[in-house]
Design a protein around this nucleic acid. Structure first.
Length: 472
DNA sequence: TTTTGAGTTGTTCGA
DNA sequence: GTCGAACAACTCAAA
């Protein structure tokens, strides 16, 4: 190994300088570095529209951060194996580092590249960076993976020691003169439409903003997290770190170290990190988690397909204000509150009897974070087809959930402005309001705001009967 | 091998 | 308004 042969750091879902083991290994090698991001054309699943927008901004931010340290981020589009070969031939690099990822298709690509390059005598190292525990590090006494969250998290917490997060490099010595593509040529933004600007008005991509958000959250909101995390009308109730985590602008280890032992509801908050870990374990051992029922008996479930109703759900026109507020929040901001995710998902699956994969695909396309593990595992959880899933008879009531968790209706008023003038007594059930109240509030049901597309009680009984039948 | 206790987030009904 | 029971068994994980 020559000191002058460069080392390649291949970035993927780890767009950060701090606590980045692959980058750290490269810097410590003392070699000139080639910092590479590949827009892979042979992904197993393309990123959704919203996620591409985040990626665009995140890469810009990351590129700037690298430049501030004296380095250069190289952008290339194509198959990673070909691009790596290209760069290896051009530069004589003899060392490659990356941080692990866990989708089946991605592991296939990474393993093939690793064995090819190792066979040619190169040093290739993959690093643990994006999870607290690798899926194979937490096993039951009989050697299997955990299928229930609570014992999984108990065992994980008992087994791991979380090392301090790595500081970012002081200075980066990049190989000069390498060809790089221009990110604007990748068309990650939606062209002539400007919905991306509207969405990004609510967010700031990038490592610095991720850390800022964590700091703000730990400064106050985490203390009341147990209760406030269920309140979509509280802007600051949750950390909103999910897109930052999905693109690796911040690591779970940084979050753990910053939050662990700080009292208040920090354990409750960290158990959400635990759910992310659990979901990745499920994905690792079930690569088709986003497309196949985890419980095979759901394959015979008689899903219905009413495209008009599904479209009403997507657009926030179901006639249930809490659901509609949620679906519009998702569309307008690229993010949706966790409590609302459950209610909206339950509505699609159990009130409209729609296959959970339809909802999973919509969230994949519209959520900035589009996490391959959490999205799939959570949809399966609501459907009842997943590991440690919600029981079939748990059907969220779309208006009592609103009355409970958005008691003044502020969340509804924000995203369903045509109902803004309704008194809180009726805001979650406008169809129960006297005609005079509706008129005063400027609401004409069926005209300015839809009547419920399904009747709750009947839909609930239908779902219960359907689930019961498919079980027998 | 068998047993035992436990399992994210809910709703409805009737007393 | 409030409280407990029913919803429904089943699977998981450890002893």
């Amino acid at each position: 190994m020559s000191k002058t042969s460069p080392a390649i750091i291949w970035f993927r879902c780890d767009l950060r300088l701090a606590d980045n083991p692959a980058l750290q290994a490269g810097v410590q090698s003392g070699k000139p570095l080639i910092l590479l991001y590949v827009d892979e054309v042979n992904r197993g699943r393309d990123l959704g529209g919203a996620a591409n927008v985040w990626l665009h901004h995140s890469l810009n931010s990351f590129s700037n951060s690298i430049a501030e340290k004296g380095g250069t981020l190289i952008l290339r589009r194509g198959q990673a194996a070909e691009i790596l070969n290209d760069i290896l031939a051009q530069t004589g690099a003899d060392e490659v580092h990356w941080n692990r990822r866990y989708e089946g298709w991605a592991r296939d690509i990474d393993q093939a590249i690793k064995s090819d390059l190792k066979g040619r005598g190169l040093t290739v190292e993959s690093h643990k960076a994006n999870l607290l525990t690798e899926p194979w590090e937490v096993a039951t006494k009989t050697g299997g993976f955990y299928k229930v969250f609570t014992p999984f998290w108990r065992a994980a917490r008992a087994s791991f020691t979380v090392d301090p997060a790595l500081p970012g490099p002081e200075k980066i010595n990049s190989v000069q003169g390498l060809e790089s593509e221009n990110i604007s040529d990748w068309d990650l933004l939606p062209g002539s439409l400007d919905w991306d600007e509207k969405i990004m008005a609510y967010h700031d991509a990038g490592e610095a903003h991720a850390m800022q958000r964590l700091t703000q959250f730990l400064d106050g909101p985490i203390k009341k997290y147990d209760v406030q995390r269920d309140r979509p009308d509280d802007e600051m109730g949750t950390s909103k770190l999910s897109p930052h985590l999905a693109f690796g602008e911040i690591s779970p280890r940084q979050i753990w170290n910053a939050a662990h032992g700080t009292g208040g509801d920090s354990d409750k908050f960290l158990s959400e990190i635990g759910w992310r870990e659990f979901s990745y374990t499920l994905l690792f051992y079930n690569p088709n988690l986003a497309s196949q029922n985890y419980k095979a008996e759901f394959d015979k479930f008689p899903w219905q397909s009413d495209s008009t109703k599904v479209e009403a759900w997507r657009r926030g026109q179901t006639g249930y204000p809490f659901v509609d507020a949620g679906m519009r929040e998702l569309w307008q901001t690229g993010w949706q509150h966790n409590r609302v995710r459950m209610v909206c998902a339950s509505f699609l699956i159990k009130h409209l009897l729609t296959d959970w994969r339809v909802g999973e695909a919509w969230y994949w396309d519209t959520l900035l974070e589009a996490d391959p593990a959490s999205n799939a595992a959570s949809w399966q959880w609501v459907a009842g087809s997943g590991a440690d899933a919600s029981p079939y008879f748990r059907i969220f009531n779309p208006f009592t959930q609103g009355e409970k968790f958005d008691p003044n209706g502020d969340y509804v008023r924000k995203y369903v402005p045509e109902l803004a003038k309704l008194p809180k007594k009726y805001i979650h059930q406008p169809w129960t309001a006297p005609e005079q109240i509706l008129t005063q509030a400027g609401v004409a049901l069926g005209k300015t705001y839809p009547k419920p597309i399904v009747e709750h009680k009947a839909a609930r009984e239908l779902a219960l009967a359907g689930y019961k039948k498919s079980r027998g």
